[in-house]
Computed example of a mutant assay.
Amino acid sequence: MKIISNDKWTWYQLDINEINKITEVIKKYQYPEYEGFLRKIEKKNSSHIQVNVIDGDREIIYGSLMYHKHSFKQKDYNSFHFYITNEFIMTVNLDLSLLEETNHKQMIERMQSLSSPGESFFVLLGEIMKKHLKGFNQFEEDFRELLWEVRQDNNVNVLDKVHKSRYKLLVWTNLVISVKEVLLGIEEAFHEKITERIEYKRILKKTEVSLMLTEQYRKEFDTLIKLEEVVSSHRGNEIMKSLTLLTAISTPLTAFGALWGMNFKNMPELEWKYGYLYVIILIIISTVGIYFYLRMKGWTGDLLKGKKKNSFFK
Rank of each mutant, 00 (worst) to 15 (best):
K2F: 13
K2N: 13
S5L: 04
K8P: 08
W9G: 00
W9H: 02
Y12P: 01
L14E: 14
D15Q: 12
N17M: 12
N20D: 13
T23C: 05
E24A: 11
K27D: 07
K28S: 15
K28Q: 15
Q30C: 04
F37Q: 06
I41G: 05
E42H: 05
K44T: 05
I49T: 12
I49Y: 12
N52P: 02
G56L: 01
I61Y: 02
I61M: 08
I61K: 04
H68K: 03
H68E: 05
K69I: 03
Y77M: 03
N78G: 09
N78H: 12
Y83P: 01
Y83A: 00
F88W: 06
F88N: 10
I89Y: 06
T91A: 09
N93W: 04
L94G: 02
D95N: 11
E100R: 15
N103V: 04
H104M: 01
H104L: 03
M111R: 06
E119H: 09
F121V: 11
F121D: 14
V123N: 03
L124M: 14
K130Y: 10
K130T: 12
K131E: 11
K134A: 03
Q138A: 12
F139W: 10
E140M: 11
D142I: 12
L147F: 08
E149R: 10
E149Q: 10
D153C: 08
N155F: 01
N155E: 03
V158E: 07
L159V: 05
R166Y: 07
L175Q: 07
S178N: 13
K180R: 09
V182S: 03
V182A: 05
L184S: 14
G185S: 04
A189R: 07
T195Q: 15
R197Y: 12
K201H: 14
K201T: 14
K205H: 07
T207A: 05
T207G: 02
V209K: 03
S210F: 10
M212F: 14
L213I: 04
K219V: 13
I225Y: 03
E228M: 06
E229H: 15
S232L: 11
S242H: 09
L246M: 13
S250Y: 14
T251R: 13
L253E: 06
G257D: 05
G257W: 08
K265C: 10
E269I: 00
E271F: 00
W272I: 00
K273M: 00
Y274M: 02
I280Q: 05
S286M: 11
T287M: 04
Y291K: 01
Y291M: 00
L294T: 08
T300K: 05
K305H: 08
K305N: 12
K307S: 15
K309R: 12
F312V: 11
F312N: 14
K314I: 08
K314D: 11
